[in-house]
Design a protein around this nucleic acid. Structure first.
Length: 314
DNA sequence: CGAATTTGACCCGCGC
DNA sequence: GCGCGGGTCAAATTCG
C-alpha cells in the first residue's frame, strides 16, 4: 500500500517538476520490488512501470541521506519534557536559516483523485441501520458519507521511535503486519471527539532507521495544550492536516517551496511548514509563533530536493 | 476505575 | 466464489 501512496507522490512530483527529472529522481533506487497493486492508481505513475521501492527511495531520490550532521532532536525551546526520548531527526532548524536537515525527511501528500475512491473508508460503523448478522460493526459509519476523500500526507523520518510525538493525542486502534516487511504498521486515530484524523506508522523495510508516517484527514480542533510548544512546534498541525479548504494542498506545498520569494514568512516561526502555507491556512498557526528561529524556505527546499529539481513551474 | 493498548476476528475490494 | 491484503472493530488486558 505504501506503493499507492508512493505512486501518488510520483504523480504530484511529476506535475510539479519536469517529468524527466522526476523520473530520474525515482530511478535512483529502483527496483526493489514491492508488490504492486495495479489497481486503481494509474496516473502518470504508470510510467514507472515497475516498481519502486517504497518510501525509502524517496529519500535516496531526493538525496536526503542521512548523513551527517543532523540533527536535532531537541528541543526547540526547551520545552520538552514529555517527549524526550524521541530522538528522531526531523528537521533541524538553524538559527539563521535554513534547516539543516539532515535528516532525511521526505514528504508528499496526496489528494484523492477520483481514481482512488476505492479506499475510502470502507467501513464504518454504522448506524444501525444495518443490522447485519455479525455484529454489525463496521458498516458505514454513520451516515453515509461515503467518504470524503481525505487528503493524505506522508513523510519519512529518521527516528528510533515508531510513534513520533506531533502534539496530538492518538489512540492506537490496530496493528497489522506489512506484507514485505518485518515491521508492523500501526493505526492511530486522533482521540479528540469528532476528530476523524487517522495516521499510520510503519518502519521502513529498506531503512529500518526511518519511519513512515501517513496522516489522513484534517484536525478540526486545536492542539492539546499539554504538548504545546514541544513537538507541536515541530509539526504544526497544518502540516499534517491538509485542510480541505486549502486549495490543492499538495501542489501548493511544493510550489511554495519552489518559490520562496512568494512566501511570507517573516514571522519566523520556526516551522517551515507553517510559513509555507501562508497565513490562510490554519487557525492554529499562532500557536507556534513563539519561535525564535528564522527559517529559510530556500534552505528547506534545498534540503529536501536537489537543487537541480527546483525549477519553477512554467 | 477509566483510558489506552493489544490482538484476533471481521469487513471489503480486488484479482484470479 | 475464494483467497489475499489492507483496514477496522471490539473484547480482553494493561496502564496510569
Amino acid at each position: 500500500m505504501s506503493e499507492h501512496e508512493f505512486r501518488d507522490f510520483y504523480y504530484h512530483a511529476s506535475t510539479m517538476f519536469h517529468n524527466d527529472h522526476v523520473d530520474d529522481m525515482f530511478r535512483v533506487s529502483s527496483s526493489a520490488s514491492v508488490d504492486h497493486h495495479p489497481s486503481s492508481y494509474m496516473s502518470l505513475t504508470d510510467c514507472l512501470h515497475s516498481s519502486v521501492d517504497e518510501y525509502g527511495s524517496l529519500e535516496k531520490a531526493f538525496g536526503l541521506s542521512p548523513s551527517s550532521s543532523e540533527v536535532f532532536s531537541s528541543p526547540i525551546e526547551g520545552l520538552n519534557q514529555t517527549t524526550n526520548q524521541q530522538s528522531s531527526e526531523v528537521m533541524a532548524i538553524t538559527p539563521n536559516s535554513s534547516i539543516s536537515s539532515s535528516s532525511s525527511e521526505a514528504a508528499y501528500c496526496e489528494e484523492d483523485s477520483e481514481k482512488n475512491n476505492k479506499d475510502k473508508q470502507p467501513k464504518g460503523p454504522d448506524d444501525g441501520s444495518k443490522e447485519s448478522p455479525k455484529k454489525g460493526m463496521k458498516g458505514a459509519k454513520k451516515k453515509d458519507e461515503r467518504k470524503q476523500k481525505e487528503p493524505r500526507f506522508a513523510f519519512v523520518t529518521k527516528s528510533e521511535v515508531d510513534h513520533l510525538e506531533d502534539g496530538y493525542r492518538w489512540r492506537k486502534y490496530g496493528q497489522k503486519a506489512v506484507k514485505n516487511s518485518p515491521y508492523p504498521r500501526s493505526y492511530y486515530r486522533c482521540t479528540t471527539q469528532k476528530c476523524t484524523v487517522k495516521k499510520r506508522v510503519e518502519r521502513s523495510f529498506q531503512d529500518p532507521s526511518t519511519v513512515i508516517t501517513t496522516y489522513e484527514g484534517q484536525h478540526n480542533h486545536p492542539l492539546p495544550t499539554t504538548l504545546r510548544g514541544n513537538a507541536a512546534a515541530l509539526f504544526p498541525p497544518s502540516m499534517f492536516a491538509p485542510a480541505t479548504a486549502r486549495p490543492s494542498f499538495p501542489h501548493e506545498l511544493f510550489m511554495q517551496m519552489a518559490a520562496p520569494h512568494q512566501m511570507n514568512n517573516q514571522q519566523g516561526n520556526g516551522v517551515a511548514a507553517a510559513s509555507m502555507f501562508g497565513e490562510n491556512f490554519s487557525p492554529y498557526h499562532h500557536q507556534y509563533h513563539h519561535h525564535h528561529r528564522q527559517v529559510s524556505d530556500y534552505g528547506l527546499l534545498q534540503d529536501m530536493v536537489p537543487s537541480r529539481f527546483l525549477k519553477h513551474e512554467p
